[in-house]
Design a protein around this nucleic acid. Sequence first.
DNA 1: ACCTGAACACCGTTCAAGT
DNA 2: ACCTGAACACCGTTCAAGT
Lengths: 218, 218
Amino acid sequence: MPAIPPQAPRSRVPAPRPRKPKPRTRYHHGDLRRALLEETVRIIRDEGVAGLTLRTVGARLGVSRTAMYRHFADKSALLAAVSRDGFTQLRVALQAAFDGGGRDREAFDAQGRAYVEFAIANPSHYRVMFGGFVDKSCVDPALAAEADGAFQVLVDTLVELQARGVLRQDEPRQLALFVWSLVHGLAMLVIDGQLQGRPAADDLLGFTFRRMWSGLEA
Amino acid sequence: MPAIPPQAPRSRVPAPRPRKPKPRTRYHHGDLRRALLEETVRIIRDEGVAGLTLRTVGARLGVSRTAMYRHFADKSALLAAVSRDGFTQLRVALQAAFDGGGRDREAFDAQGRAYVEFAIANPSHYRVMFGGFVDKSCVDPALAAEADGAFQVLVDTLVELQARGVLRQDEPRQLALFVWSLVHGLAMLVIDGQLQGRPAADDLLGFTFRRMWSGLEA
DNA sequence: ACCTGAACACCGTTCAAGT
DNA sequence: ACCTGAACACCGTTCAAGT
């Protein structure tokens, strides 16, 4: 349950000196692109993807609603950037969980837990990443690279566990897809509310990892 | 790759006898609701959810674009009905695969395969069912019941496999959620195109079921 | 380069009115 | 009951124009 970050209410015009007709210093100090992206992520978190409106993004930034088109081709491209940003965050979280946990079998469970926790903490963001919102016809190569990067963290983790002799010597990418399917499916079911009245997410997570290991240990 | 069903081009007005001012026989012979639902499913299959427009649905049926509101509260309710319809189809397919396969361990694999195949054959429909499109605030109880029905087929299947002694004696619902997560995650990754250039879906399916069984057998 | 503001072609939904 | 047609308040995107 991430708290809403502290954020000064934005006024449309800074208006420090209202004497000249319209000084209107160049908006956004050089990084409107980043500001647009962050504001979009914020709106998606608070209102969901369906509540995202390009007009609102502009208005909240004190900028014309067409200013966005200088930085993104269209709404789909903006969502692709949001998706890319999500994969970056996910990659960092997965790596941190494994490294911080001691790079062993228990650390791998912590990594899986971090995956599901990311989805629970950012359900709308997660849905943008996997919900088929970004237009497949114009796949951002940067997005594909970032998604691959997150997947690669998992592959590397599995290779390391194989080297330690605790994990079966199957093809690492196939093992990674097996694990990814499991945590991805679990995450989706949780954030979709399909677990209503069923075993709590935490119990299920523990059970899932035990069964998974039972199928994967060397 | 389902072919586009044969469909006569619709004219707004039949106009067989243009003498009387406007005879306009009562449209849709009593089941506009079903016609709306079927047309919506067709549009979603061909164009995706993003391509769905209430105006188009009406136009394709030769009906005013507001006629829909006699049968569905709003667009979200229409999508909820689509979702419900999908869960019905899925439930029937899962049951048929297990029954037709001989109700044993291999039949269970066939059921899993049927699950993933349903998602691959109807990716957009599947996304409506799990993509968070239906408004959670007004959950259709009929939809919840139908989703539960599909889940129950899996639970019943697992109970039967336990009785045959081929499956661990864990809590069936927890086992079912484990399996569901796995096939659901697999299905999502496949229809999202995340498996590009990676092991073919069919190989992965076989590998996944083998690892799964290794963690589940009694 | 970067941004504006008007305009365009859409969209879901409401509602008084018809039969 | 069931459906229409006009109207309302939106939406993404384009584009000539400003600096």
